[in-house]
Design a protein around this nucleic acid. Structure first.
Lengths: 160, 160
DNA sequence: TATTGTTATACTCTATAACTATA
DNA sequence: TATAGTTATAGAGTATAACAATA
């Protein structure tokens, strides 16, 4: 009997390891667990980092546009916006020209905290991509982007 | 006013698009939605394709090893195994040498159906990676693997 | 009539804690 | 005492359907 614990990868057959879809899923699980463990003191914001960045880049975005951008139903976004508003990250203001719309903005405090959070996200990203050459990173980014395009294009043509 | 709808990507700032962690998350969401829409008639198996492949490669694996391999708590695995057993994919047999353990196997029917499911997974993967050169694919796979290694290694050293 | 945001509701997925049976 | 599997339970996260306000 060997004292070495069997590694997880030993159980994963090669053809599964070669599947990009499997790797993506596995990475998302791992990265998310790690991210949540490492980043604290930012309330519930870390998991919505991407969304906060989109709001920062599109101040006053309507909730429905925001929901579409992150592939969520507009109703699913409501409690998220509410929580982040209570935590001081966001404010909603009714749109003057269309009073159905509520525009979403980062607060000054939210902007300030987002820049601090960004430092942590950078660290996380650096740890995750350690050992990858700039060239590999570039190819990786292109590949990930191409796949996202492929998947969204197919969604449009499918047109349920 | 232009008739063209604003694309999602127009809302995503470049620095966010360049984040591998953001892309991974986005891709996982898109790929999963697409996968579930396209693949039907396989019961609840498609979402557990990876797990079924691991069982196929490790016949008689103990539930706890399987849970570790897919980063789930052993208790979370129980209802999954149960469902797939009821659907005829799996059987559990008590281990002779350690009666606490229940060994998990694919049924003959499960093996047969898994090979059919695999055809669909291949199609999904091909659509997703369309336009990527063999070289890009190779670099992509290496990058994804390296990141998985980075994340699991860091988990071990953190050692909470 | 259609759209935006909201609410009520239900479903899925997951972890934690406690239990059981074995070791 | 520790481990494998199970159960009960609770907490996220999500979508669907229906509603109010507005266009």
């Amino acid at each position: 009997m060997f004292p070495l614990p069997e590694t997880d990868t030993a159980l994963i057959p090669q053809d599964l390891q070669d599947r990009v879809s499997f790797r993506i899923r596995q990475l998302q699980i791992l990265a998310y667990k790690r991210f949540e463990k490492v980043i604290t003191d930012f309330g519930s914001a870390p998991r919505y980092y991407g969304m906060l960045k989109i709001i920062a880049a599109n101040p006053g975005i309507a909730q429905i546009r925001l929901a579409e951008a992150i592939f969520l139903d507009r109703s699913s976004l409501v409690p998220i916006i509410e929580t982040l508003t209570h935590e001081g990250w966001l404010v909603r203001k009714p749109a003057a020209e269309d009073r159905r719309v509520r525009r979403v903005y980062l607060t000054d405090e939210g902007l300030r905290r987002l820049s601090l959070l960004e430092v942590e996200v950078n660290r996380h990203e650096a740890r995750m991509t350690k050992g990858l050459s700039p060239q590999s990173m570039a190819t990786l980014r292109e590949g990930l982007e191409q796949m996202a395009v492929n998947l969204t294009e197919q969604d449009q043509t499918t047109k349920d």
